[in-house]
Amino acid sequence: MDRRKIEENIFKGLMNASMLIILASLVFILVTIIVRGLPAMNLAMITQTPKGGYYLGKEGGILNAIVGSLYLAGGATLLAILISLPVVLYLNIYSKKGSRLVAFTRFSFDVLWGVPSIVYGAFGFTIMLFFGLRASLLGGIIAVALLVLPIMSRAMDEVIRMVPQELLESSYALGATRLQTAFKVVTRQALPGILTAVLIAFGRGIGDAASVIFTAGFTDYIPYSLLRPAATLPLAIFFQLGTPFPEVQERAYASALILTVIILIISIVSRILITRFTKHIVK
């Protein structure tokens, strides 16, 4: 066989193997949590908070962690949007291209992206101590917002960079200010990408355990105030897995299943939203 054809085949094999590894990991994880979690799954899991002795195998559910996680990831995502959007709009619309500040900001995002989430937790905890705050939903929201901020900003930055300069010029030529152009034209054109960025950040935020362990704490109750501690699904999984009781460990897998389903639902809903918003995009 001709040498180039061999190269081609080797590379094809490599690609197929890589695809297989990715798909198999997903399938294997899903199968594990379904097989081990499904027996423990019942209505009480998602409608009740833990009753006394829940972690010993008695009655109750993890509604506290479901609601806590949704509040926490939702709040953190919102907070991160409020910071990300102005930054990326500045980087792409207001700043001079190729200035040092721009390069340095992008570099900071890359570094922050790589910081382990436990460090954000510890950092958030230090700030909380400084302000005399106890472990609370607010503390958790701040720590998770810091964690997802670089991920969201970098993802938004990539899509906003793709908006053609001529489109901006069309808007300027009509007498629009930069701010009007940013919000009426750029965010619209980049909306699907922005939504994807938000989604990635939300998924990362809702699944993280280390950043909330000190900052949000854990509780058996549904948080009714920003200043109360909040339970989260990843920590609920961690605590349940850590017990010596097989039936409680099963519930950990059921909790993982719930977390996965939440992420799945959010992904599907946002895909639907994205297709609705893409109709105006200029190619």
Partner: peptide
């Protein structure tokens, strides 16, 4: 800019 309309080489409708 309000005093001047611009047509560019390739039309760029707004999204």
């Amino acid at each position: 800019r309000k005093k001047m309309g611009l047509l560019s080489q390739k039309p760029y409708p707004l999204p």
